[in-house]
């Protein structure tokens, strides 16, 4: 191996600063959420306590935090499952050109680049003008899908661009039906990427704010609840909530990564070469 150049050390320092920039603020509010009872939104810490966490669990005057948390999780799971299923089928379909596939592709790109407030405004108007009530599980669900589906599809496009078609040809030569090919050959190979799509689907939905703003109706999701708090709560209870939701996100991410790691190990142990080509 050639020795490390000087630029390596400069770039390492740059990367270190970038990571600090990414994580520093979050860590700071993590620390400040343990602020003492008389403390404020910035340092110095006036003692260390769990006061603001207790506050979060007791005080219901600021709104329905736990209800919104529950709704956000249910909505996140709904979006996650839909995103995975629709993206896989869509990704499979887009491997062949069909009439209008170009138009649909541009629609997907539009969904990705359209300012989020337009989706919120448009879906809100659509429901109110057709006499329907906006609700997080209908209009909110659909509005979030316009953001998570294009993401899932882009990942699937990337996956299928790297997919070795000779696996499928081999399956076909051995007499597998199209469905068997997909079920026993394609799906197991792309399974690790599906975990990624699922993670994206859930977290993008769980944190989505702009698209649910006008489409959630009278029951808030968690980001909306937090947004409401920023305008009228000026105590570290905000940080306590931020710390808890961030911890929850990290827990989900950690769980998914462990899952991916374990399945990789199992695959390596089983000695199968499935997925190596991905």
């Amino acid at each position: 191996m050639e020795p490390r150049s000087r630029s390596f050390y400069i770039l390492s320092a740059f990367f270190g600063l970038f990571v600090l920039f990414l994580y520093g603020p979050t860590l700071t509010i993590g620390i400040l959420s343990f602020q003492g009872e008389g403390g404020g939104l910035t340092f110095p810490m006036r003692g260390v306590s769990m006061y603001w966490f207790y506050d979060l669990f007791e005080q219901q005057a600021v709104g329905d935090i736990w209800g919104s948390f529950r709704r956000s999780i249910v909505l996140g799971l709904m979006v996650m499952v839909t995103t995975v299923v629709v993206s896989v089928i869509g990704g499979l379909a887009f491997r062949k050109k069909f009439l209008g596939s170009g138009i649909l592709f541009y629609l997907i790109i539009t969904a990705l680049v359209i300012p989020s407030i337009l989706v919120s405004l448009g879906v809100g108007l659509l429901f109110s003008q057709s006499g329907l009530n906006v609700h997080w599980s209908t209009s909110g669900f659909g509005a979030q899908l316009t953001w998570t589906l294009p993401f899932g599809l882009l990942i699937m496009f990337a996956v299928f661009n790297r997919f070795d078609k000779s696996y499928e040809e081999a399956a076909r030569d051995l007499g597998a039906s199209p469905w068997q090919t997909i079920r026993y050959v394609v799906l197991p190979i792309i399974a690790p990427s599906l975990i990624g799509v699922a993670l994206f689907g859930f977290t993008l939905s769980y944190d989505e704010f702009a698209r649910t703003l006008l489409t959630a109706g009278s029951y808030n999701t968690l980001p909306l609840e937090i947004y409401g708090m920023t305008t009228n709560v000026t105590s570290p209870v905000l940080y306590a909530l931020g710390t808890l939701t961030t911890l929850f996100s990290l827990l989900i991410i950690g769980g998914v990564l462990t899952l991916a790691l374990l399945s990789n190990r199992r695959k390596a142990r089983a000695g199968s070469d499935a997925g190596r080509a991905v």
Binding site: V85, V86, I89, G90, L92, A93, F94, K96, F98, L99, G100, S101, L104, L107, I108, T110, A111, I114, L118, V119, L121, G122, V123, L125, L126, G142, A143, L145, T146, L149, L153
Partner: peptide, 21 residues
């Protein structure tokens, strides 16, 4: 078959993207 497979996607984009726009 292509349209059959993308129909869920197309429906979502139609109802929650195109019609709102």
């Amino acid at each position: 078959s292509g349209w059959l497979m993308v129909s869920p996607l197309a429906v979502v984009l139609l109802v929650f993207l195109l019609m709102p726009i």
